[in-house]
Design a protein around this nucleic acid. Sequence first.
DNA 1: CCTATATTTAGATAATTGGCTAATTATTGA
DNA 2: TCAATAATTAGCCAATTATCTAAATATAGG
Lengths: 96, 96
Amino acid sequence: MKQQALFKALADPTRRQILKRLRRGSATAGDIAADFEMSKPSLSHHFNVLKEADLLRNERRGQHIVYSLNTTVFEDAAGLLLDLFGNRAREDSNEN
Amino acid sequence: MKQQALFKALADPTRRQILKRLRRGSATAGDIAADFEMSKPSLSHHFNVLKEADLLRNERRGQHIVYSLNTTVFEDAAGLLLDLFGNRAREDSNEN
DNA sequence: CCTATATTTAGATAATTGGCTAATTATTGA
DNA sequence: TCAATAATTAGCCAATTATCTAAATATAGG
């Protein structure tokens, strides 16, 4: 797991919106682009960043490229958060 | 809760290390600086970013400024992750 | 094989970021 | 009040990033 790539990918609002867009199901690059006010190359760049973080999977289907969420990374992300906060929050929160 | 500030704050490795350092308990700016190979002003900048994300609290104690983790934001962060992945991962993972 | 369509890659540029040193502010204690 | 200590703010610079347009690549269908 590439921790830095994951955090970096999540740091951009456009990329987070792409993830949210893909919750509704996989979509082609063009479909996604239609929902964003941004050039296709810019979005393509964001797809790459998300892919480096292993947050997206893609598959060519004819002329189209279909992107979909890789939900398995969700667990990694949760683990990273726990790591940062030392999971004290779970067992005993003595600072309320 | 400032979502963008939170994600941005977590995107930097130095800042993540600061958070981890503070898991061991609160510490003064100088104490923390002693653990990092970086100038104090640079660290001070990182403290600010973390504070904007509400990840840190600080309190002046004499000449020192004591920083500590704000663990309540942990829940916010977890919520944001769930939001991104649509918590499908919890109920039904049909892509193993 | 050629053209249209979908997408990515290349290359340029403006904005942001992360680091530094120097200067400033705040506090303590003599 | 002054010197010492702790930390921040200011100002500068190099590296990274997000965006764009133009060019390249891949595929489908006639």
